[in-house]
Nucleic acid binder design. Structure first.
Length: 564
DNA sequence: ACCGTCGGCGCC
DNA sequence: AAAGGGCGCCGACGGT
């Protein structure tokens, strides 16, 4: 199904009279040149959207999570949208649209950070301003006016294709985030409880009491450190006890403690491990975040400056491997777990057009390919050197190995080095599709200041350089992942033959370079192929004909714990 | 009792 | 083994 030849847009805005929201919605139809095709007022939005969706319009609205969850709850999906707030955030800072009226305007309501916006289901209108007669939102919050500003910014851009692709991918991500929350990640509370019980002991009957295994280990630690009242959850208390036992450390970080030789260290590290599991993903987490066999975190597209998603609630992007066994497919269904292997270095190679590094990755394992080229001696060295290049390591083995990489792959390493230098000078850097780093640093520093001030300013500049260095890689990888997911969604939707979202294969989880699709068992193999085809499409969308490969590791499993 | 910051650690 | 990028969440802690 190609998109309709002449795209129709429908801009939605809530209607208010005076202070009260009426529940009515204004729907303004635009042709693909942005011209008005008429306005109507709608009382029953789900019915309207369901009917219009047959013409495959692109819905334009202020904020996807204010509109879409209610539609999903009524059994209505949409194929495409523009999320004006997310797109505004991109266009506001993109170097590709820096000359636009949008970018030059004073900050307004469309620049409000996501965190300050009201929750979608709290009933209030997002940008509602007082008025006395029936009309959409007033003044600068008018979505029609905002849409034309955005349209003009894209049209006048040096790279309208790239920036337009980014806005479409970002908006598709917003739809996916809402759909994933709606569907939920299948979660078996009984399995979770079994895992916790196996590691920590049974759930304590008294609130706040430590589980048996934790209690046991704590007793051992207290005895070996001769601190009967030690609270190991308090870094200050622990530091004091360690000092009294003759152990000199300045922090209680695990990797610092590992260096120490003392009989209490083993049990102490064990305690920390278990205490972490209990506090972060224990029974309290289960009670709070899992309901009706589903975990429904709140995904926040565009929540990270680099374009990565954030989440709020339940720490969905930090699910420890220990408990992934609780993510279990429904009876007769499977989980298809796919992750992009070595995504960021491959992205870097493609962005830089570094044929040597691209070639190193074609055989499968990029790090093995780097070793084969003779740049470094072991796979571990290749990995550490690459991470150092992308994060800006200056010391240790990583810092020592990086120059070797720079000699072997001057274009790829040169790209991140240039990004770092640009950041140090206070310049912005831009991803492949056009997301720019925020203007953050005052350029230069005054050499006439004191030595200490100069040192501090220089260190600050270097830290900002490490950020911009990483930004272009992490940000472009995030764009690849958005295109990948949007393509998976579109393909699954086309194959679903009209079946409702949760009755057909659908995305249930996303983790930067990894997706999980919940699917009827019989379709799992086909889903895997769909995911592979989508990865190839994402590569082409970003890099055109450059022969760079993005190989996937795909597992078809009953539970997420078996995926890796 | 509530709020913001810090140390620590989980994920990529 | 651990220093470089990006996050969110926990308990502890110090303030009000």
């Amino acid at each position: 199904m190609p998109p309709p030849a002449a795209e129709v847009l429908i801009v939605l805005a809530r209607v208010s009279t005076g202070k009260a929201s009426t529940g009515r919605v204004m729907a303004a139809r635009l042709n693909d040149a942005g011209g008005s095709m008429g306005i109507e007022y709608v009382d029953d939005l789900p019915t309207f959207v369901r009917a219009e969706e047959k013409q495959r319009p692109r819905w334009v609205w202020d904020y996807t999570s204010r509109w879409y969850p209610a539609l999903l709850a009524e059994g209505v999906r949409v194929e495409r949208c523009f999320d004006l707030r997310l797109c505004h955030a991109i266009l506001r800072f993109s170097a590709l649209t820096a000359d636009s009226a949008l970018a030059k305007a004073e900050p307004g309501v469309w620049d409000a950070p996501a965190a300050t916006l009201q929750r979608p289901d709290d009933g209030g209108a997002l940008f509602e301003l007082p008025s006395t007669q029936e009309q959409p939102v007033a003044g600068e919050a008018d979505p029609l006016a905002e849409y034309s500003l955005q349209r003009a910014a894209v049209a006048a851009s040096a790279e309208p294709g790239r920036i337009g692709r980014l806005l479409a991918a970002e908006s598709a991500g917003a739809l996916i985030a809402a759909e994933m929350r709606f569907a939920g990640l299948p979660w078996r509370a009984d399995r979770h409880d079994e895992i916790l019980t196996g590691i920590l002991g049974p759930r304590p009957t008294v609130e706040g009491e430590r589980p048996a295994k934790l209690q046991e280990i704590l007793a051992k630690v207290r005895e070996l450190l001769e601190s009967p009242d030690l609270n190991p959850d308090s870094p200050a208390d622990l530091l004091k006890a360690l000092g009294a036992a003759g152990l000199s450390v300045t922090s209680t970080r695990s990797w610092e403690l590992k260096k120490l030789k003392h009989p209490a260290i083993g049990p102490l590290l064990e305690y920390k491990k278990l205490a972490r599991l209990l506090s972060a993903n224990g029974w309290h987490w289960l009670d709070t975040w899992v309901a009706d066999g589903r975990f429904r975190p709140d995904y926040v597209p565009g929540g990270v400056v680099t374009g990565r998603w954030a989440t709020s609630g339940g720490g969905a992007l930090q699910l420890p491997r220990q408990i992934r066994g609780a993510v279990v497919a429904d009876e007769g269904w499977k989980l298809v777990v796919a992750d992009a292997s070595q995504l960021e270095p491959r992205i870097l190679a493609a962005m830089a057009g570094d044929r040597g590094m691209v070639a190193a990755g074609t055989a499968g394992d990029l790090y093995a390919g780097i070793v084969a080229s003779g740049a470094v001696e072991t796979r571990d060295q290749a990995k550490i050197a690459m991470l150092g290049a992308m994060y800006g390591a200056t010391t240790g083995e990583s810092g020592r190995l990086m120059p070797k990489l720079a000699r072997a792959y001057p274009k790829a390493i040169g790209l991140v080095e240039d990004a770092a230098r640009a950041g140090e000078r206070g310049e912005v850097v831009t991803t492949r599709l056009g997301r720019s780093s925020p203007p953050g640093l005052q350029a230069g520093y005054d050499e006439s200041r004191s030595e200490a001030e100069t040192t501090r300013a220089r260190e600050h500049a270097r830290a900002w350089g490490r950020f911009t260095r990483n930004f272009i890689v992490q940000g472009t990888a995030a764009e690849w992942a958005l295109c990948w997911m949007a393509s998976i969604r579109r393909r699954l939707n086309e194959q679903a033959d009209g079946a409702w979202l949760t009755e057909a294969p659908h995305l249930v989880f996303f983790l930067h370079d990894e997706v999980v699709v919940h699917t009827p068992s019989a379709q799992a193999e086909g889903v895997a192929e769909t995911i592979r085809a989508a990865a190839a499409e994402a590569g082409t969308l970003l890099f055109g004909a450059i022969p760079v490969e993005f190989p996937l590791t795909i597992a078809i499993v009953d539970d997420y714990g078996k995926a890796k």
